[in-house]
């Protein structure tokens, strides 16, 4: 983490339990600096989504809770706050799988993002134009029901909807899911622009390690509910283990799944 920027978000050794019995996160710590784009990497079931939901406190609605550790945003403890209070403070999550309101039009979807704002119609309309500026495609489809738009358009709607709350930080969960590679690139480029032009910080959970490390400044790798590695995007991208397990590259060319070394090295992380 760059030493100069103070962390906007810091997650400190949290443990998450679902339904009082299922331990999912076993002590996760991470930091996101003001204006940073931080990637949270890992395979299926590693705990990426749970980490994001612990921060945005959508956990509660799934009968999960943070049982240990602390989460601090902008110098304030937030693990007890409701999602409503969190959105007001500037943290908002864009959920995996887009979750647009299918029976609302694209524009109505965007307007629901402004629910927590007290500002008048003028400010909201200006932000609507700002979102349309980043996603011109949405302006063309503003009147269609979100359920009938394409996957890419839904992802844009979901990100645009989050922007309407004027967030300081967006927790972006798997924006690449189910989208064509070209669209994914476009979405990531917009994320980068939002980061530099609007000053929104991002915590980005991704399975597409390659793409995430290309756009993020820093990364954490989760495995089985623990952070097993972290570092600058370049450092992570050039690490041999990351290359082998997450980027599908290795010095010795393609490897067989029966490779014993693979198993051993992975095991070392899990211990």
């Amino acid at each position: 983490m760059s030493e100069t920027a103070k962390p906007l978000l810091s997650v400190n050794n949290i443990e998450v339990i679902y339904d009082h019995v299922i331990l999912v996160l076993k002590g996760v710590s991470l930091e996101v600096p003001e204006g940073g784009v931080v990637a949270l990497l890992g395979a299926n079931g590693a705990g990426k989504t749970t980490t994001l939901k612990a921060i945005s406190n959508l956990l509660h609605a799934e009968r999960g809770e943070v049982t240990k550790g602390a989460i601090e945003f902008d110098g304030e403890q937030i693990e007890k706050l409701t999602p409503n209070a969190l959105v007001k403070r500037g943290v908002i999550q864009v959920m995996e799988g887009r979750h647009c309101f299918e029976h609302l039009s694209v524009e109505e979807n965007l307007l629901t993002g402004a629910y927590t704002r007290s500002g008048g119609r003028g400010a909201i309309n200006r932000d609507l134009e700002m979102v349309y500026g980043y996603f011109p495609r949405l302006k063309e489809r503003r009147k269609s029901l979100a359920g009938y738009t394409s996957g890419g358009e839904q992802q844009m709607t979901a990100i645009g909807r989050a922007l309407m709350s004027r967030p300081k930080m967006i927790l972006l969960d798997e924006p690449s899911m189910g989208l064509a590679p070209q669209l994914v690139e476009g979405i990531f480029e917009t994320v980068k622009r939002l980061n530099t032009e609007e000053g929104v910080s991002f915590l980005l959970a991704e399975q597409n390690t390659n793409m995430a490390l290309k756009f993020a400044t820093y990364g954490y790798i989760l495995e089985n509910g623990r952070v097993v590695m972290d570092g600058d995007a370049e450092t992570l991208g050039s690490n041999e283990d990351v290359k082998e397990f997450y980027l599908g590259l290795s010095a010795g060319g393609r490897k067989s799944y029966r490779d014993v070394k693979h198993y051993k090295r992975r095991k070392r992380w899990l211990a």
Binding site: L58, A61, T82, P83, I92, L104, N109
Partner: peptide
């Protein structure tokens, strides 16, 4: 109305409504 829109949003997708800060 804003509340009416929020009601329809909740009817469509509880989780998503929660995520944009609509208090269920």
């Amino acid at each position: 109305t804003r509340i009416g829109r929020a009601l329809r949003a909740v009817a469509d997708d509880h989780q998503a409504a929660l995520s944009v800060g609509i208090p269920l």
